[in-house]
């Protein structure tokens, strides 16, 4: 009764996260599609590897698969930072066209060069939320002198351009840092503000489509080539349904999430198109400039994304 092939999948998310749930559903469907020949074991919540280790673990075949955040590739695949360019591709109609596009193919090729094969683009979030205690961060001027927990080198150049002071505090210290006021503000996805309970220590939330976070479902290429075609197609089909189910959730700004956050007592502002535009003009040019400086195929990718 033991399956012929096993797919061990590592990810960093708590079990209640929407992508973690989509991966659970993927596991069930992939096993079903294989007619019992494939066994999928999920190791979630960093129990096996820390987030930063997943890439190497898959590339070297320590596990067969992992789900990796687009922010996590850092300078190793700098092109993946395209999603972190403020307001560049956060609109639902762009995201809908993205998987299967030439832009996606270019990035998949970059990942392949780094030893992993991407089989799905799982949409994690396209709604960012600034949280703060003293005053809401709505307009560029509000960021002046604010100590904010940054999002990595690229996006942080945009914060610096507005006069904010980004910090690189480790995730485990953020909650306490916000509580005691070592940092004034944070930025994460709407659902993460809720899941990480930042609302307990922050008064204001400003929801805006600042960046997009994808998770790539990546597999070890040698293992992938070794699978029989039927099993591989079963996995691909399951991956596609996971991709579609998450894309549907990201199709619109989540009014339910906003309501849920309001119920916690936070004062929530949803950016109007004008407010969005103001922040875009303050941040995007600087970040694009930095992006082009640090990537080989940056311009090409930028052009492809702008065609979406």
């Amino acid at each position: 009764q033991a399956a012929d092939y096993s797919m061990r999948l590592s990810h960093q998310l708590p079990a209640s996260h929407h992508v973690a749930k989509a991966l659970e559903a993927f596991a069930v469907e992939a096993e079903k599609n294989s007619g019992g020949r494939l066994d999928v074991q999920i190791f979630g919540g960093e129990q096996l590897y820390k987030a930063a280790q997943n890439h190497v673990a898959v590339a070297r075949g320590q596990v067969e698969a992992a789900s990796i955040l687009s922010l996590q590739w850092g300078g190793t695949v700098p092109e993946m930072q395209i999603f972190s360019i403020p307001y560049l591709m956060t609109r639902p109609e762009q995201l809908e066209k993205f998987p299967g596009s030439p832009a996606a193919a270019l990035l998949e090729d970059k990942l392949q060069q780094k030893g992993v094969k991407s089989i799905a683009w799982l949409l994690d979030a396209n709604d960012s939320t600034f949280t703060s205690q003293k005053a809401p961060l709505v307009a560029p001027a509000d960021f002046k002198g604010v100590k904010i927990r940054g999002l990595g080198r690229l996006v942080d150049t945009g914060f610096i351009a507005m006069g904010a002071a980004p910090s690189t505090m480790p995730g485990s210290e953020v909650y306490q840092g916000l509580q005691t006021g070592v940092i004034d503000a944070g930025v994460s996805s709407l659902s993460a503000v809720y899941a990480r309970r930042y609302y307990e220590v922050q008064k204001y939330a400003v929801v805006t489509p600042l960046i997009t976070v994808y998770q790539n479902l990546v597999v070890n290429p040698r293992w992938w080539e070794g699978l029989p075609a039927e099993v591989r197609n079963g996995v691909l089909a399951a991956a596609k349904s996971a991709e579609l189910s998450l894309a549907a959730q990201g199709a619109e700004q989540d009014p339910e999430g906003v309501a849920k956050l309001e119920k916690t007592g936070m004062t929530v502002t949803v950016h109007t198109p004008e407010q969005r535009k103001a922040l875009e003009q303050a941040m995007q040019p600087v970040v694009v400039g930095e992006f082009l400086k640090t990537t080989a195929d940056g311009q090409k990718l930028l052009d492809l994304v702008r065609q979406l």
Partner: peptide, 16 residues
């Protein structure tokens, strides 16, 4: 407490 923060995040429980 470091472990309380970890548990709170892993299980969606109030850290405060």
């Amino acid at each position: 407490s470091g472990p309380m923060i970890l548990y709170g995040v892993a299980t969606d429980t109030s850290i405060s």
